[in-house]
Every structure is written in structure tokens, then in C-alpha cells.
């Protein structure tokens, strides 16, 4: 409520004038979003219920409104669906566990190095995301130095590998989406008045209780934003699975990709895309409702 009120008054203080201007400002961008986001999604819904043209070439489909496409697609890609959500969930959890102390340290313990550290969080972004993923593959691969070392120390068996595994896919995703988690967390932690933490200490809460009762609740907007920004791209990702995984770690993105390009099965790919989007939107809506941070949107 307070948030809404302040938003209204803020907008109203200066240019409260109504008229065509805001719509003129919106028009070009909104038109673009409509053409290249909404229309494709609608078209995708259409494609998802098509069936192959009898006797036609590969890639020729006709609209028959076959909703059973969805059931077929889901059944065909059930393990990949499950994997996508489990991997994304694990990667989000890991990213949160790694990012929270990092963001906390930058927000409260970095002193005059704060800006430099913030730049450092984003800096890995500036080398290509694919280059970094390939770098991990090579560091942790057969030719890298990590695996021989671990084998020599008998930490892992002589045949064991670190890449081409579910673990590698999850940690790869964790790594790639880490800044998406760290930055919103930092932003919400930074906004906390350190005196509220002192007040909590003063009111008989020790460090852990203060974190549980004050710091963490106050950082909730950052937690919600960070987990969403990590979970959504992770669930749809297939690059990590392709580079760091094996045939048993494929995710829904890999299936959509191969249905499109290798099998040229547009309806199944469309149905899968649609289900993925719907599933994520439903999860996100429930999550935002439950965490009570509607103002994010």
C-alpha cells in the first residue's frame, strides 16, 4: 500500500498531465514487443496444434487443432522436463548459498572497496558466457590439471570424471547465473539501515537471530528477484547441458532445440516451449504471491 501510494504521488508530483504524450512515448517500443514477442507466442500456440501434411515433405505442417500434441510432447520429454526444473532449482539454491555471503560482504564489510567489488561481480560477464563455460569444461576435463590431481590424491577414482555429468551441468549453470543472483541481493542488503541491525543486537538478538529475524526478512525482495533471475534462464538453458553434460543430462531446452533443427518437428517443439513458459509463469506467480513481494513487477 505504502509503496503504491508513494509511486502514485511521485508520478503525480511533476508531470501529472494526461494526454497523448505517454502513449506516443510507448508506441514504438510496445509495437516492437507486440510484433516480436506477443505475435510469435500466439503463432507458437498455433504451431503447437499442427500435424504433418500427409505425404508432404519434412517440415510441412497443417493446422488441425490437435491438442493431443501436448500430451505426446510431454510424454516424449518427461525426463528432460523433470531434469530442467530439478537442475534449475539446485542451481538456484547453490547460487543463493554462494551469492548471499558475497553480497553481504560487499554491502556491509567492503568499506571503500565497495564499487570495485561490484564491478568485479559483473566483470566475468564481459568475457563471453560460452567462452567461460568452455573454459570450465577444459579446466575440469581430461586435459585439465584438476582431474589428474584429484586422481593422484585418490579423492576420485581413476575412471571418474568431473565433466560430462549432472554435477557439472548444475555447477556450470550456478556459475553462469551467479551475478544475476548477487546483484539484486546486494541491492536489497545495501538498502538496510545498519542501525536496525544494531537495534536488533541491542534488543537481545544475537548474530544468528538478528540475521534470521531482521537481515534476511529485509533482504527478501533481493532474494525473490535473484532467485527468479537465476531460475528462469536456468530452466530454459541448454548450453550448459550441451557443453558440460552427457546424453543423460539433457534438459528441455536441448529437446526443443533438436526438435526444431534436427527432427524439424515444429509442433512438438512449439508445444514443449509453450508448456515450459506456462510452467515457469505459474511457478513465478505462486512464488511472488507467497513471498509477498508483488511490488517487484
Amino acid at each position: 500500500m505504502a509503496f503504491l501510494q508513494s509511486a502514485v504521488t511521485r508520478a503525480g508530483t511533476f508531470t501529472g498531465r494526461k494526454g497523448r504524450l505517454p502513449y506516443l512515448l510507448l508506441l514504438p517500443g510496445m509495437l516492437w514487443l507486440f510484433t516480436f514477442f506477443i505475435l510469435p507466442i500466439i503463432n507458437l500456440a498455433g504451431t503447437s496444434t499442427q500435424t504433418p501434411v500427409l505425404g508432404g515433405d519434412t517440415g510441412q505442417y497443417v493446422q488441425t487443432f490437435r491438442l493431443a500434441n501436448y500430451i505426446d510432447a510431454f510424454n516424449a520429454a518427461r525426463p528432460q522436463f523433470a531434469r530442467s526444473f530439478i537442475y534449475a532449482f539446485l542451481a538456484t539454491l547453490l547460487a543463493l548459498a554462494i551469492s548471499y555471503p558475497l553480497a553481504y560482504a560487499i554491502a556491509f564489510r567492503s568499506g571503500r572497496f565497495k564499487n570495485i567489488l561490484l564491478v568485479l561481480v559483473v566483470a566475468p560477464f564481459f568475457t563471453s558466457f560460452l567462452l567461460r563455460t568452455v573454459a570450465w569444461k577444459q579446466i575440469l576435463g581430461e586435459e585439465g590439471f584438476v582431474v589428474p590431481t584429484l586422481r593422484a590424491l585418490h579423492i576420485i577414482g581413476p575412471q571418474a570424471t568431473l565433466t560430462a555429468s549432472a554435477l557439472a551441468v548444475v555447477t556450470g549453470m550456478t556459475y553462469n547465473f551467479l551475478p544475476f543472483m548477487t546483484l539484486p541481493l546486494y541491492a536489497s542488503l545495501e538498502r538496510i539501515d545498519p542501525r536496525t541491525l544494531e537495534a536488533s543486537n541491542d534488543l537481545y538478538a544475537n548474530g544468528i537471530t538478528t540475521f534470521r529475524k531482521v537481515t534476511f526478512p529485509l533482504s527478501m525482495p533481493g532474494v525473490v528477484a535473484g532467485t527468479l533471475l537465476t531460475f528462469i534462464p536456468a530452466a530454459g538453458d541448454y548450453v550448459n547441458a550441451a557443453i558440460l553434460g552427457n546424453p543423460n543430462t539433457t534438459m528441455i531446452g536441448n529437446v526443443i532445440d533438436s526438435r526444431f533443427f534436427r527432427i524439424v518437428d515444429y509442433p512438438t517443439a512449439a508445444a514443449l516451449s509453450f508448456m515450459l513458459m506456462a510452467a515457469i509463469l505459474i511457478l513465478v506467480t505462486i512464488y511472488i504471491r507467497r513471498s509477498g513481494t508483488d511490488e517487484l513487477v
Partner: peptide, 20 residues
């Protein structure tokens, strides 16, 4: 409408555009 593209996985954005 601003929020939705950010909440949509890239595969969906990419495949839907290509289909169109």
C-alpha cells in the same frame, strides 16, 4: 508486457520467433 520477456526462457523466445 515489459516484465514478461524477462520471465520467459530464451528457448521459448528464440523458437517462437523462428516459428513466426
Amino acid at each position: 508486457l515489459i516484465f514478461l520477456p524477462m520471465a520467459t526462457p530464451e528457448v521459448v523466445l528464440g523458437s517462437s520467433l523462428l516459428a513466426m
